[in-house]
Structure formats: structure tokens, C-alpha cells
Design a protein around this nucleic acid. Structure first.
Lengths: 203, 203
DNA sequence: TTTACTTGAACGAACGAACGTTCATAATAT
DNA sequence: ATATTATGAACGTTCGTTCGTTCAAGTAAA
């Protein structure tokens, strides 16, 4: 029998959960600063204030640390999913979403972590699946708003809502990525983006 | 005095140039298959059929091999630059470009190499600069076509040609990347992309 | 409440493998 | 004869992981 789901958790269990979280946070910072492959397990342990051996009591290996971070990233999406789910004015919701998502990706660390995960996702199937799952949720929510807007006349009815949802997300992400590389801001690209976007989807 | 530019090249010089190229090709394949950090210098040397020490006669180090590959990638863009430069029918040229670029990125190895360079570009300034330089050329050529189309009535005059050029390129690249991760084809996404694009830019 | 027993978190030395790079030496072209 | 290229052993470092051990918290019997 495994642990009861309603288990309040002993003092020890809570401490363990906190340690795990500490390690993950430290790993995130390391990966952002120096990249996954340039980060050693010792670096993570040191930053987390945990011994090398103990890290291996909490995680099977380095890869699993990254995988757990990738899973954690899913939680970051909930604000955006909520924003999209509670829509009653599709055109405005899309604008709000684009602005909010751009603001989120305006923090370079978020972009860098995404890129770090991206390049691992190519060759690590488990991370790849998490990656596409995250994207699927966001795309579905956005497509739903697009469909609403197609019904109420906000958007052109010839729109392919699923494909368009993908592209809207990608436009924001690409702008954010470009901002990181060229050391400018996403905000400066937002006007051009929304103009382009309005023309693409509005009726 | 360095080597004369008009130097016809001795037999030896040519052989050396070929060796260099052989090594670069081998390195490219390694980086595509296993990623930059997962590839050892020995892997490159072995694949190129060259001794480990000799590789260091041709390149100062591993990083320089990647940097040279990044520089080489610039040459890959010339067909697209030519296509865009020789435009007399902007609307058609854009469609042709999108189709051609999508076809190029339809080969997963091109996408993977780009991602590999991308994630290095974040922390290696020299590669980052090559990266943005490549993109600047392509964007400029595409923006020029957009401007033509704005004059001749193909495209809406409210268009921001530079920002739009960026976004067109990014839409194709994002679709290609997504195709790699989800193991589908770029071709299947091309219809939705061009529809979205036409709505965004045409008058 | 005190006792003996169990559990697993914490630790860092140690392991073998692989890393990027250097170098003395051998081969070869000019 | 000379200059350059080719070679692979060797270097020192770092990698991810394993291991035996210590010790504190949890459990249950007395």
C-alpha cells in the first residue's frame, strides 16, 4: 500500500517535500544561468545547500531533475488558461492574452528556460511529450476563444481556429525569443504584433 | 604578410581546405544526431576520418567548429535571398518564399541544427551575432518585397514591413519546429499558414 | 514515560568514464 | 633539407553516479 492521498504528512514528509523543492529551484537557476549541459550535479547541490549524495536520495539522476522542472512549467500556464476560459468578449480576450503572455515572456529567464527545455525535448521523449502537452492545453483554450469570436462576428469565419491559435502563440514566443537574442524588449514589438494579428483574424 | 587573396592555392593548400570541410561536415552530422554538448571532439574526428590531434591543427577548439558551421549556414540563405531579390510580383513572391522556406525546413536536420545553434547563441556572443546577422539579411530582403507590394496594391498600406517580415519568417520556422517535435510534416501546416498570412498582409 | 528498534535522510569520498586539449614523434610534401 | 601535416598517447579536469556510513526522527513495546 502506498501513501494515503489524504495523508496530512508527517513533519519528515513535509521537510522532504521542501528539500525537493529547494533542489528544483536551485536547478532552475543553474539551468537558466549556465544551461543544462554546462551545469553539473555538484553545482545544483551546492546552490541548494544540499550534499551531492543527498540529491541522489531525492532524484534518480540529473535528467529527472530537468524533467520535473518541465512538469512544473505546466503550472505556469494556469493563469493564461484561466484568462482564456473566462472569456465573454473574444476580441478583447485575445488582446489581453497576447499582452499577458508577452509580459510573461518579457522576463528573459522564462524564455531561456523554455529554450533550454526545447533543445532537450528534441532527443528526450519524456520531455518532448511534456512540452507538446503544455502547448496543446494552451492552444485548445485559445482556439476555443477564436471559435467564440467566429460565432459572434469578432473574427472572420474562414479562420482555422486550431491552426490560428498555434500561430498566435508562436508569434508571441518568437518575438520574445528575438528580444532575448537582440537584447531589446518584447514590449517594443507588441504593437507590430497586434496589428499583424488583428488583420489576420478579425472580420 | 598573410596569404595572397589571389593565391591559386598549392596542391597542399587545396588538400587542407578539403580536410577542413570534411571535418565541418562530420561535425554537422554529429551535432544534428546527438547535439553539440553530447558530441565529443573524438566523435567528430572519428567521423571525419581524421586523427584527434590533426583536428586541432585545423581548428583552435570545439567551439570554433560550431562557430564556423554557424557561419556556413549563411550560405544556405542565398537561394532565398535571390528568390526575394528577383521579385516582380510581390504577392506571388511571398507565397513562393514561404513555400520554399517551408520546404527547406521540412528537412528535420535543418531545424535541429538551427535549434542547436540557437541554444548556443544565448550564451556565446559570437554565435549570437552570426545568428542575428543571418536573420537580418533575410528580414531585409523580405521587407523589401513587402514594401513593393504596398506600393503596387498587393498588400495593405498600413503594414509595418519590417515587423511583418520578421513575423512571416518566424511563422514558417515555428511551424517547422512544431512539426519536428510532434513528428508531423510542415507541409500539413502550410495551408493554414498561408491563409493566416494572406489575411494578415493582403489589402 | 522510557526503552529498544526501524527507517531513511544526509553526507562526501571514491569510481570509472569521458571531456577538451597538448605534445613529442612520425610521415610526407615541397 | 626543410616545413608542414598527421598521429595517438597522455594530461589534468570534470562528469554523473554509487557507496558505506552516520545520525536524527518515527514507531512500538515495556
Amino acid at each position: 500500500m502506498t501513501k494515503d492521498l489524504a495523508d496530512p504528512g508527517t513533519k519528515r514528509d513535509k521537510a522532504v517535500a521542501q528539500r525537493r523543492r529547494t533542489i528544483l529551484d536551485a536547478a532552475m537557476l543553474c539551468f537558466i544561468e549556465n544551461g543544462y549541459h554546462q551545469t553539473g550535479v555538484r553545482d545544483i547541490a551546492k546552490r541548494a545547500g544540499v550534499s551531492l549524495g543527498n540529491l541522489y536520495n531525492h532524484f534518480p539522476g540529473k535528467h529527472d531533475v530537468l524533467a520535473e522542472i518541465a512538469a512544473l512549467e505546466r503550472a505556469e500556464l494556469t493563469p493564461f488558461l484561466d484568462l482564456l476560459a473566462g472569456s465573454d468578449a473574444p476580441a478583447k480576450t485575445i488582446d489581453d492574452f497576447v499582452a499577458a503572455y508577452a509580459a510573461y515572456l518579457g522576463k528573459p529567464e522564462n524564455v531561456i528556460l523554455t529554450i533550454e527545455l526545447t533543445s532537450e525535448a528534441i532527443r528526450k521523449p519524456d520531455i518532448g511529450e511534456l512540452f507538446v502537452a503544455n502547448r496543446r492545453d494552451l492552444t485548445a483554450a485559445l482556439a476555443s476563444v477564436l471559435r467564440q469570436g467566429m460565432s459572434n462576428g469578432d473574427f472572420r469565419t474562414s479562420l482555422d481556429p486550431d491552426a490560428s491559435a498555434q500561430m498566435i502563440i508562436e508569434l508571441v514566443e518568437a518575438a520574445a525569443f528575438r528580444a532575448v537574442l537582440s537584447k531589446t524588449t518584447v514590449a517594443s514589438k507588441l504593437a507590430g504584433l497586434t496589428d499583424f494579428l488583428h488583420a489576420a483574424i478579425r472580420s
